[in-house]
């Protein structure tokens, strides 16, 4: 009986930590979804997340206030998004190349600014981890309580964003404009929608959400800023958007699979197995993609994705 209770606790622990590991990918994926719906393909998410991780860390480190940290994370990633917008919307460079440039820039810039701020120290500076908030009444439910209602605020916000981004894209006037700009910018322009403005807005919102995703690593998971702390989460988010057919619910599914597999393999590593740990580390990146590819249907891509708009061109 006691053994059964322990197994249950382990399973609950893995699922709960899976949800936490899924959250940053979810933020980045939902943000990228909005950008891509407007026709902007952003390969630079990873760089934006790293800038978010850095911005969130210093904001919180110097003020002790998580809200300021998160706002700074959104702003740091948002600045890169403005640059991405300038490259892809205003001067219409190749969107793939612009995205890769943003990734490299974000990676390097975050590391450089961190060194400039803190120099080289023997003990890395740290912040206290963001506290958990129990949802009163619900967090004590057996099983479900610890899995769903015993998390930091960003988990709740991230999961709320799933229906909210859906409603935003499909039920609001602005969402319709974003979709039309991503499908047929010429039509949008002819009807008086400012294609450039909408695209800037979408790419900046996407960048800000990626920034929150990045800050999750420094503020919730570790309490430190490290180079490449996001570990490829931006790339996973990008893949989830495409294989999740630009739909919030599928991005959530993909992010959860990523988080669960990651939690599971971390658990396995802790228990010690004969499998090489490199193999285990690969799993969270491989399995969600494999699952979504299996579900993949060749529909849903915004028709004008990665296509710059030039007024008056046929």
């Amino acid at each position: 009986m006691k053994l059964a209770g322990e197994t249950e606790a382990v399973i609950i622990g893995i699922i709960a930590s899976g949800i936490r590991l899924a959250t940053p990918v979810l933020f980045a994926g939902l943000g990228e979804k909005i950008a891509e719906r407007s026709g902007i393909l952003n390969l630079g998410i990873e760089g934006m997340m790293l800038m978010g991780a850095f911005g969130g860390f210093i904001g919180t480190y110097f003020t002790g206030n998580y809200v300021i940290g998160i706002l700074l994370a959104m702003a740091s990633a948002g600045i890169l998004a403005v640059l991405k917008g300038f490259l892809s919307i205003t001067i219409r460079t190749n969107q793939l190349a612009a995205g890769l440039a943003i990734w490299l820039l974000g990676t390097g810039l975050a590391a450089l600014l961190y060194r400039l701020t803190f120099g080289v120290r023997t003990a890395a500076p740290s912040v206290e981890l963001m506290p958990k908030i129990d949802i009163p009444g619900l967090s004590n439910l057996p099983g479900i309580g610890p899995i769903l209602f015993n998390h930091d605020p960003l988990v709740y916000i991230g999961f709320l964003l799933v229906p909210l981004t859906y409603i935003f894209i499909f039920k609001t006037n602005l969402g319709l404009k974003i979709r039309t700009v991503g499908e047929n910018p010429k039509q949008a322009d002819a009807l008086g929608v400012n294609v450039y403005k909408i695209r800037y807005l979408a790419v900046i919102v996407g960048g800000a959400l990626a920034g929150i995703g990045g800050a999750y690593y420094s503020l919730v998971q570790t309490g430190y800023f490290l180079e490449n702390i996001t570990g490829g989460a931006g790339w996973i988010a990008l893949a989830l958007v495409i294989f999740g057919r630009w739909k919030s619910q599928w991005i959530l599914v993909g992010a959860l699979i990523f988080g669960m597999v990651d939690a599971f393999q971390l658990g396995l590593q802790a228990l010690g197995t004969t499998l090489p740990y490199q193999f285990l580390l690969m799993l969270p990146y491989l399995i969600p993609i494999a699952v979504l590819v299996g579900l993949y249907k060749r529909t849903g891509a915004p028709a004008a994705l990665a296509t710059p708009y030039v007024r008056g061109e046929r």
Binding site: R179, T180, E183, N184, Q187, A188, A303
Partner: peptide, 13 residues
């Protein structure tokens, strides 16, 4: 916009 509804196409903008 082919994937959108008639109404969405008419009211956008």
């Amino acid at each position: 916009t082919p994937p959108h509804s008639v109404t969405e196409n008419i009211i956008v903008g």
